[in-house]
Design a protein around this nucleic acid. Structure first.
Lengths: 257, 257
DNA sequence: ATGTAATTTCCGATTAATTCGGATGCGTCT
DNA sequence: AGACGCATCCGAATTAATCGGAAATTACAT
């Protein structure tokens, strides 16, 4: 009662902790009170209270004494995707594209300043590549990301760069803001983006943005082994097909039912 | 201080509320403090505190004054799926199956007493059917679910039935526990399950469970329009292909790298 | 443009709710 | 059987959430 310390604008500690625990449940792929308590350095009776409370929500299950995150995450994510109009329109086009080219096709959207893979079609190598729907990457490291970035407002671009920086993924990743800005201008002029060992060595990508009334909804890209993409004619062919798909989706988005 | 009411085993109210708000953010597809406050009937200064706290976690984004659930859900769900060994092994087999049959192939697992679609392959009608990866259904209403249910222990079956009941989806859904038990015995004997307008009118399914050492990992099914599945020869052919896939996956699961 | 309404954000004392030590119960391994 | 580890339960102390109200910001209408 003597020394009252005024704390301005603190997060609700209970909320913070609840989500820390949720996150750990995910990362540990399920756990009990003791395990979590050790990680967070809090008494396990406290963790127990949290885990039981979490179990009362739909987000956590308790099975045979182990607490795990529930299928509700799959449901939420599934619906996030399913109610995304771009996904709905892009999915059949992507399938066609993957059948025609035999390559891996990806659909990426921007969320919170990072690129999130919303969908992939084709490419049996998809699994081994370590990219999967839901995976997120910095926007500047990959063609799909740059295609989106180029279509954002100058303010938003700066905001994202400030917040996220220009982390290098490989030695070819663009880490200089000036160079990135220049390339974005080029992308705006050309209408498509490419990358080349910037995200993963040995892999490249061609991508086009999907925009409706100056707003970018996402981008579609074709993943190609670097050596194959050096064939200019092949690259031109892929770009051609991409732009056709881009056009179809854009038109359907605006005028479709 | 006078009347101390002993409350036994209450959930942490802050946790409960945080997740209520999270859930609303999802269901409303983003909202501000006032909107949430109205739904929950709490002062919006309180809701504001929660929303700001949630924003500090990776689960909620704030953009232009609107709070929305973040792409982290997509990431979590994506990885849940990606690290599921059954999914990894089943995916290429499912693709092959869908190419051979032209039908929609589904992979379902049991989580928390309900069936969750982990993956789908093929079937352009998939989108219009309203089934999508992440969607969950009661186990007793569909062949994939019954195939799993049949392989669970008697105790677990009863537990699930007690907890979830036998909700009817169509007039063909099995709602009598006795009849369900009988059918499960039949499924155990036959090694496969079928349904027929039980989940959606006009749609049927043939499904086989994937089990390893008496533990059921999930099930794979083929969705077929009811009228087409009445062709016995066709049905036998599909079953044949399903069992081949079942066998491949089981062997790879046990002996694969 | 300008004023007005609606919403978001901020603050701090009150009070309800979280916390944590310790005690109990349960399952498992030796 | 005994002992250990872990989950679960309990209740009093005290921390931390709460909510009214005020200020700031944004949105809207004229």
């Amino acid at each position: 009662m003597a020394g009252t310390v005024t704390q301005i604008m603190t997060s609700l500690t209970t909320v913070t902790r609840a989500f820390e625990i949720l996150d750990l449940l995910w990362k540990l792929d399920g756990a009990g009170p003791t395990e979590i308590a050790a990680e967070l350095d809090v008494p396990n009776s406290t963790v127990y209270d949290y885990l039981e409370s979490l179990t009362d929500t739909k987000f956590v299950n308790k099975e045979k004494g182990e607490y795990t995150i529930s299928a509700y995450f799959l449901t939420i994510a599934g619906r996030m995707r399913y109610r995304n109009r771009l996904f709905q329109l892009a999915q059949p086009e992507m399938r066609r594209l993957s059948e025609n080219t035999g390559e891996l096709i990806g659909l990426t959207v921007e969320m919170g300043g990072v690129g999130v893979i919303l969908h992939q079609e084709g490419g049996d190598q998809a699994l081994s590549l370590g990219t999967y729907p839901g995976a997120s990457t910095p926007l500047h490291t990959v063609a799909t990301g740059k295609a989106i970035l180029a279509k954002l407002s100058e303010d938003r671009i700066d905001e994202i760069l400030d917040q996220r920086g220009l982390e290098a993924r490989t030695q070819h990743t663009i880490t200089d803001p000036g160079r990135l800005k220049a390339e974005l201008a080029e992308i705006r002029a050309d209408g498509y983006a490419v990358d080349w060992d910037e995200q993963v060595i040995g892999m490249g990508m061609i991508a086009v943005p999907i925009t409706v009334e100056a707003e970018v909804l996402g981008s579609i890209g074709i993943v190609v082994p670097t050596k194959r993409i050096q064939d200019e004619a092949y690259q031109a062919d892929l770009l051609d097909q991409l732009q056709e798909v881009q056009n179809t989706i854009t038109v359907n988005y605006q005028y479709g039912q």
